[in-house]
Write a protein that binds this DNA or RNA. Structure first.
Lengths: 296, 296
DNA sequence: TTAGTAAAATAATATGATATTATGAAACTG
DNA sequence: CAGTTTCATAATATCATATTATTTTACTAA
């Protein structure tokens, strides 16, 4: 019993005529006859009583008619749902990101995206290595990470140039000057993320490259907590611009230049090289670039 | 998209491998590959991500998998239900009968039949012409009637020989004698069914054939009511043995012979000549004959 | 790194189910 | 009773769906 068989049978049921069904299905009448009698042979039940030249459904015929309609409806529903997916009227996108992007950028990006497409977006925050692994086993479709990616099977494309800002409280003595020499930082209490975080890695690497010594006095694993501590003038910190732009504009934190030292890093978009790029996927990448051009 | 496509796709989903699916379905691996890529072409969506040499379902793939399983389950359910019908584990039989048979015989017959098969039996009571029409337009599968059938397309097979008994109350003066001469009936008050009823037809025809005159004093359309009236000695009546055997055995009514006049008729089983005789249908006819041999 | 193996894709071909046309039988219509 | 309609049957054609053979790619183990 094929779907075609069912379609033919249901049409015959509804028109109570094989010839009419053949006409409606744009096929010859014997093809319909053959299909029906073949079904009767396979199922070993009589589907129609041929009384006179009228067809009337037998009891098993009625049963099959009712199932047949349900089956065809399900098939049509499946096809139209897939069509919706294809046309991005529905869909699913699984995105992963490292901490800074995940907390300070992606929620807004996804919010905007969902205003345009009513799709489900799943969203994971992990460190770069974790996101990389999720990409490798296809647990997420796309990631935005800060660190270097090692797997040769992952495509990495540059996304946003990020910069870490040295920030202090508006009550700090640097708040007025807005610029210091690298030497001035040496005796300052620095509040910093834990070892292994992307932010700390960039900070330490840049300081080392510029031969500046420093003293980390407080370690906090949460950027928001660091910002509060800096605001309270417990120390100064180096934080991604994405995390502190609002506070700087609001005057609660002050950005301070350290000679011409800049803490720079790049965010990258990553995905698996063999990943099929659905319409929704491509649309999301376009959306990411549109969004980034607003914040640069 | 055919059922075969869906079956192959679902198998691949479950085994996460085309080769394994091919093996399970006893077919070659390229056939599976081809089916999947053809489905992807038709539906215009990617169903699997081929990452490395592992397959993982895309979002539309997951949607189709869930629909696919439902569709296959429904098809299997339909097939197994039809199989139940074929093996008479379920079914439907629509029976019609004229009044006497319908009221005094069929309920018990159907009751016995349903003890053997758990099938639905629909049951219509009408006069012979009505039952004949229901057979003609296939509204019922089988009928049991008393009168002659006219349509050439209806098969009539003899069923039971019925006899009408002249009965009186146990308090009637005939109750002792149990036999009268035809002449004695002429001045007796007779209670009888209405004109057009099979019982009355047989009664009048038999009386006329034997040149016996009679006087119908009361007309009741309900045989039960007639029996009560006879019991109350309001008059005597002529009633099918099927309707009065219990009362005669119980002594509440007395059967009286009228010389050697007998009121005889035949019940017939009728069905449409083009009717497909399902197992259940044949079984019911056998059941009818088994049953009748118990009451003869 | 390199054989060896395994999985999926591709190409060419074979098979068989599912159509078609042609025709016949039965039954309803005027 | 002729004409028409409907379904069934037979012979044939077509096309979808399989198969075998082969290539490509990726994983595994020496």
């Amino acid at each position: 019993m094929t779907l075609r068989d069912i379609e033919i049978f249901v049409t015959v049921c509804e028109l109570k005529s094989m010839s009419a069904a053949a006409k409606k299905l744009y096929m010859s009448q014997p093809a319909v006859s053959q299909t029906i009698s073949q079904m009767e042979g396979e199922l070993q039940v009589r589907l129609f009583d041929r009384i006179g030249r009228k067809l009337s459904l037998t009891y098993p015929g009625e049963i099959l008619y009712s199932y047949g309609r349900r089956i065809l409806n399900l098939v049509r529903e499946a096809e139209s749902t897939l069509d919706d997916v294809r046309n991005m009227r529905m869909g699913r996108l699984r995105v992963g990101a490292s901490t800074t992007v995940g907390i300070y950028l992606l929620p807004e990006i996804i919010g905007e995206f969902r205003k345009r497409f009513s799709v489900d977006v799943y969203f994971t925050i992990d460190n770069t290595a974790g996101i990389e692994k999720l990409i490798s086993d296809n647990s997420i479709d796309l990631g935005i990470v800060e660190g270097p990616v090692h797997s040769r099977e992952i495509v990495v494309i540059p996304y946003i140039d990020d910069e870490l800002y040295l920030v202090c409280s508006k009550n700090h003595r640097w708040a007025e000057k807005k610029s210091i020499s690298p030497a001035e930082i040496e005796n300052e209490d620095i509040i910093m993320r834990e070892k292994g975080s992307g932010t700390r890695e960039v900070f330490e690497e840049t300081m080392a490259r510029n031969n500046v010594s420093y003293r980390i006095k407080y370690v906090l694993t949460n950027t928001e907590a660091i910002k509060k501590a800096v605001e309270a003038n417990i120390g100064v910190s180096v934080i991604s611009r994405l995390a502190v732009e609002k506070e700087i504009r609001g005057g609660r934190l002050v950005k301070v230049d350290i000679g011409n030292i800049r803490f720079e890093r790049k965010f990258s978009i990553i995905y698996h090289k063999d990943k099929f790029k659905s319409n929704l996927f491509e649309e999301f990448i376009r959306h990411l670039y549109n969004f980034s051009s607003n914040i640069k």
